[in-house]
Design a protein around this nucleic acid. Structure first.
Lengths: 212, 212, 212, 212
DNA sequence: GATGAATGAGGCTTCATTCAT
DNA sequence: CATGAATGAAGCCTCATTCAT
């Protein structure tokens, strides 16, 4: 019986659709409220019935983008799998999700990335959230004996570094053909076995010198 | 009475230096003419003596960025090499140029990329130019018997797709360690030997299905 | 079919209550229709059933504030008292009314004053009305021989000036302890006896010169 | 030789004049940049050459208003007078300044007060500055044996309370006739002699009850 | 050749007001 | 009778651009 605020949510969703339609049709440049209002067939003032600010609107856009990834992370973290399996699933599932998203609508995918570049602050929150979940898995892994001598934070940072090609959507396009589940498995295992407090000095930049 | 346009060119170059200095020192955000004028020690109005518009200025910035790449492409295309050798040189030389540029000044490199994101239209022109040169090489390759059954455009597109890791500067950072001249050689050969009209249906997305 | 306007008046009164409740609870800032509607549990649009405009609403607020003062003035003016008695009652009764209002709810009192500041045009009308009544008393006083050589307007102005501490609510707070009915009596008598065309030059600003 | 920023200061001053002219001619309502620009014969954008924001502009307006008062306070505080003399001068000089300002242009004076009401935050800073100077005098007075048992802050607060009629411009209008240098002298002396830690319970509100 | 001055268009946001239902 | 929906005007601010000097 109680319909709290009519169809405000529907309007919100529709506006997000319009944003999507907009960047789908004209690429990644900054989205203006004027432009959005025109495309949505409403006044700029009316947009404020649905979103408290431009910032809030693009938070919602980001949320729409990140929501399925977050659901995956939650599922994986709260599952009964071993740390090794969780680690694998944690990255594999999201990688496949992004890759398929790109395959379905390459240009839209890229435009979303551009949008993310323009709202780094908003994006950062979601990235931190991902690190938070990863830290929970790392913690479990430590309980199981992995990552000896490393802090959680440092481990999280190293893992992110090694798996950039599976995480960064900018690289999804490139790596679609060279990345496979087997490789991810291998890398995850390598991390679990090999990531620990370093015992010897690191050889540095030899490759770069050779390439000159 | 004096040579009028000679100093214009000098001023232009100096302004481009200032732009570089600016993004080197404060990262990738949008560059304002006010900001640029202040850094250059001149009035915003005076900038218009050197560039007809902000757009023109950033065209020049892009030109400065792309100029060495263009020279490479011209040299390669107009050389006496075989299509196979041209194809290799075409990508290898530019890849090394970018990689070294990144290694020399990583932050400046990234800031330039950000700038490129903000002026996609300008960038697109240079990309098209690259495709134009590539098409000339592909044409020669076809004369030499490669790419049977494919159109020039389609071949150019496929090649670009396969070589993204060697082209897209966004990937240079990530892929520096996993990319080598040998690999490029291999890929080029694989393209020449393998790229032709497809004869059988492509198996697709099996991974995605499994991941669900 | 039913009595239409009866409930309108009730709604009007209720809205004025809500305005009062609002400024009572959050002080004197500008009152927004959105805010008022929320507090009243109705839509902003519905407010227009009761008041033709925001202006009209605040006229009503002012009227509620001024109404008891007006009644007092009417009673005094239409009474059978002498000019001297009228003059005293005219100011004394209203002063006590305001002072007690302030003592009862100091913050509400102050908030109303703030509201008045934001709607000077509305307030001015009521002030003019007060001057009108005062002029009637002055006229009677002149008939009784007072204020020789002065015009009505000038007399009204002078009286207002001398009695500011008894009139201006802004001063009520400060002067509560130093003002008394006896003093008002004295001042009224002084005015009646002393206010007449000046016969000698006014000594002026000697203090200011000394202070320099 | 170095003329730092042309006539930005002149423009600033002129704009403040325009603000003054504006409130002189149409009273105290909020001053809009559009309105100000129109009156000044320039575009709103151009105002920003002189003031970084609307806030900054009204800070300057306030500064213009407070500047002579501040100079007086500085002079008094840094003089060689006794605490008693300083205390008297501190309030007397500023009171005379305000009173004369009101006498010279009553409506302008009032409009400035309205403006102050609309920018309370800006005004508060200057009021705090006044308290700071007063605290220095109080400190000296304590060295001379006054205000036994009281803290500086509490003394400052009490003094401000007792001298409201000499400080608050809202009361200047009223009190012009009832306030004199002698009275101020008396009050100052009374404060110096009488203000100390209270020894007996305070009788409360008897007056208010009597007035009922 | 170079500058300070000035502008207009456009961006985000708030709010009183209207209207179909 | 009342509402949600929608708007337009106005406010502050930024910035590329122009122009007289």
């Amino acid at each position: 019986m109680a319909r709290p605020s009519t169809n405000i949510d529907a309007g919100r969703a529709q506006l997000l659709d319009v944003v999507e339609h907009l960047i789908r049709k004209r690429g990644g440049g900054p989205v203006t409220l004027t432009e959005l209002a025109a495309e949505a067939g409403m006044s700029t003032a009316n947009i404020y019935r649905f979103f408290a600010s431009k910032e809030a609107l693009f938070e919602a856009v980001a949320e729409r983008w990140f929501e399925p990834k977050i659901r995956i992370m939650e599922q994986v973290v709260s599952s009964n799998l071993s740390a090794r399996e969780k680690l694998y699933e944690f990255f594999a599932r999201r990688f496949l999700l992004k890759r398929d998203g790109y395959l379905a609508e390459p240009e839209l995918f890229v435009s979303y990335l551009d949008l993310g570049d323009q709202h780094e602050d908003i994006v950062r929150g979601f990235i931190d959230l991902g690190d938070h979940y990863l830290a929970m898995i790392v913690s479990q892994a430590m309980d199981e004996g992995y990552f000896a001598g490393l802090t959680i934070d440092r481990t999280v940072s190293l893992i992110n570094l090694m798996l950039v090609p599976f995480i960064d959507p900018r690289h999804i396009i490139t790596l679609m053909h060279s990345v496979s589940e087997e490789k991810l498995h291998q890398i995850v295992d390598a991390m679990l076995l090999g990531l620990r407090e370093p015992g010897l000095a690191t050889p540095h930049l030899r490759l770069a010198a050779a390439a000159e």
